[in-house]
Every structure is written in structure tokens, then in C-alpha cells.
Simulated scan of single mutants.
Amino acid sequence: MTIRRVNAEERLTTSFPLQAYAFETSPRSVARAEEFRGYLPYNEGNRTLVVEENGVTLAAASAIPMRQNLRGEVLPMAGVAGVATHPLARRQGHVRALLHQLLDEMRDEGHQLSALYPFRPSFYARFGYVGLPAPRTVTFSPADLGGLLRVDLPGEVRWERVGEGYQDWRTFTERCLDERHGFAIFPGYRDVGVRDRDEHWLLTARSGGTVTGAVIYRIDDHGGTLAAGDLLAADPVARMLLLQFFARHVDQVERVRVQVPVDEVPELWLTDLAVHVEARVARPASSAPMARLLSIDALDGLAVGPGRVRVELTGDRWLAGSHLLDGTTGALEVVTGAAVTAAQPPAVTLTAAGLSALAYGVLDPVEIGLRGLGEVPAEALPELRTLFPRRNPYLFSDF
């Protein structure tokens, strides 16, 4: 049994068939198999590893070189995807071996973070991943937006096929990456798939010629659903411009469905807006995302509060050792070596998932102990809360 990296052409007969069996209708048609070649350009920069035995592919996993915003700093992130195992080779440790090597290689190349959508969260929790908030799906009737049609809003909207407006879409998501904690985007070779397929409408809000909001959507049928992706808006005016456009579909669709981050409150968008907000998490098809730090260096230089704590990281392949986390200057300094031993601030013991939960802002330090992700004495609680205030990461992922 061997693990090796496959090239683009080899994906057609190794990783793609396993992924199709795991995530699509099965058995696949001959025509579907022939479509695999069309995916190659959008996977060209991925790192794909496979487990093989006697020429048979037993398991596959890929890492996509992405970028993610962690508390204001945009860092290289390995997006793990396409994890699949041959049905006769499951539960034999193949995925564990693949992930170890895959993350080893991505970390060595400088990727300091990693994120994924798990088939089973508890499995990836053993690799140091911690859960992030799932996006909220918001459903409402365009009739309830009718009042917006009488409002004179500053700015304008542009409506076009995404193939035509792709560069505006990409530029605005780059802006969101710089401004939004947790936001992540695909590399260009992967992202252009939405342009090349050209299967969606692109709506953008603009102010003074600058894009301030954007959403990609499709309409399934007359009297049906206007199904949109993430409603991205830099400010309330941009959001209202996008909603005002949806209001014009009152005689075309019954409902509008969009995705929003967890800190949006759609019930307050308008008076008398009847809205259904849902975050559905289920196995195996609708899991919330997960993420982790791959390197302690990801924390160095982050804007933090003036806390100070010693951290012992245990039980992890990629994060281990003693570190002093010092935020007294407002920029986190990670100190190792003799200075850690000499330091006298409160000490905590954390797993990789525990430190990742604090860095991403998804758990309070008290919850770290309650969840079995570390040991945090009472005197360290205020220091950690000052260093890592709660945040709502928004792991954006487009079509």
C-alpha cells in the first residue's frame, strides 16, 4: 500500500471516480464519467493524494490552496476537499494516513490554517478541527419587500450574467476577504469555474462606481424560487439595494432564498417582513464547516487585547510545545524558548482544537474546559478573553 500525489490526468481514473461515488448519484452514467475531463482546469493547483494497493485506488483527498481572514490578517489556508474511500476499503485508516501526509505537505508549503466541510465532525475533531458557524438560509416572499420599491436609495444596481460580470464579483469577494473575519476564497483557477459555467445571474450594488454588494442567483421556475448564494453587502444601503431588486420579482417567484452569516438579523431588515431563518446541520450532507490552526505562527502579529498567558499545546501532530502569548502591545507576540519558562502569567493547557476555537472566536475559555479541549484555570479566563474576544467567523464559499 502506497500514498502518492497524482497529476491532473491521473485524477480522471483515481480521485474523481471515488468522489463521484461518495458525493453524487450512483452509479454514474458513461456521459458523467466523460465530464470529469472538464473539471481538470479547476483542479490544476490542487494537491491530490491517493492510497493505492496493487494498482487500485483505495482512498483520495485533496487540498485547495486558499486564503482566509483570521482576525484581520489574510493567511494561506489549506481547504481540504474530495475526501473519499473505496466502499470495500472503508474504516481501515486510509483517510487518517492521507490527512496526516496532506496537511504535513501543505504546512511545509506555508499554509497556516485549514478548513473543511466534514462528513462526520467527530472524525475531524480528532485532527484538531473545531466547528465554525453554519451560514443561515433566509426565505421570504418578495411581496413583503414591496415597500422598498417606493424608497429612493443612493446608488444603483447592475444585473448581468455572471460570465459577463465575473471580474466585479471576484474583486468584491477579495475586498470581503480583507475585511471579514473567517472569510475565505478559492484560488483564481478554481473560482473561474463560476464564470465559465455561466449558470447564474450576478446582481451588484454600486456607489460612485464602486461595487458595495453582490449576490449570485438562479430562478428555478415561474412561480418558484429565486435561489441565491451569499448576500454580500459592505453596508446597509448595499443590502437594501439588493433587496429592492428582489422586490421586483413579486409577480414572478413565490419566494426568495438567500444565505447570510450568523450575525445577520433578517427579521430586522424591514417591518412586516415574514421571514424564515434556518441553520440546518445534519450528517452526512449538511455539516457546518470546521477549521484549525496548522501553525502557531498564524497567531503572531494578530490584533488582540492586552492579555498575557502561557500555553502548553498537547496531543497534536502540528501544534505542540510551550508558548507565551503576549498581547500587551496590541499585536500578539508568540514567544518560545527560555522566555516562556521565565514568564509568570497564568498557564493553560490546550489541544489544537482548543487553541483554534479561541483564535477563531467560536468558544469562550470556560467552554474549552467543558468540551474537553484543554484545562483553563480561573485566573487565566480574563487573560484569554482579552486576547481572543468572541467573534463570528464567516466561512464564505461560493458556487
Rank of each mutant, 00 (worst) to 15 (best):
A8K: 06
L12A: 11
L12R: 06
S29M: 08
G38L: 06
L40A: 06
P41R: 09
N46C: 11
L49C: 05
V50D: 01
E52Y: 09
E53V: 07
N54R: 13
N54W: 02
V56T: 12
A59C: 05
G72Q: 10
P76Q: 09
M77A: 15
M77R: 01
G79K: 02
G93S: 08
V95R: 03
V95I: 15
V95W: 01
A97D: 05
L99F: 05
H100N: 14
L102K: 04
R107G: 09
D108K: 12
D108Q: 14
Q112K: 14
L113V: 11
S114M: 10
S114K: 02
F119L: 06
R120D: 10
F123L: 07
Y124V: 05
Y124C: 06
A125Y: 00
R126P: 00
F127E: 04
L132Q: 03
P133T: 11
A134F: 08
A134T: 10
S141D: 13
P142G: 12
P142T: 11
L149T: 14
V151G: 08
D152E: 15
G155N: 07
E156Y: 11
W159G: 08
G165R: 02
F172P: 00
R175A: 10
L177S: 06
E179F: 00
E179A: 02
P187Y: 05
R190Q: 14
V194P: 03
D198R: 08
L202I: 07
T204D: 06
V215W: 02
R218G: 13
D221G: 08
H222E: 15
G223E: 04
T225F: 01
G229V: 04
L231V: 04
L231N: 03
L232C: 08
A234G: 14
L243I: 11
A247W: 03
R248F: 07
H249W: 08
D251A: 15
D272Q: 12
V281K: 06
S286V: 06
P289N: 08
S295V: 10
I296T: 03
D297W: 12
L299E: 01
P306Q: 12
P306N: 13
V309K: 00
V309D: 01
W318M: 06
A320E: 09
T329M: 07
A331L: 15
T336V: 15
T341F: 14
P346G: 08
P346S: 09
A352C: 12
A353Q: 07
L355G: 00
G372L: 11
L373F: 07
G374P: 00
A380T: 02
A380G: 09
L384P: 00
R391I: 09
N392S: 15
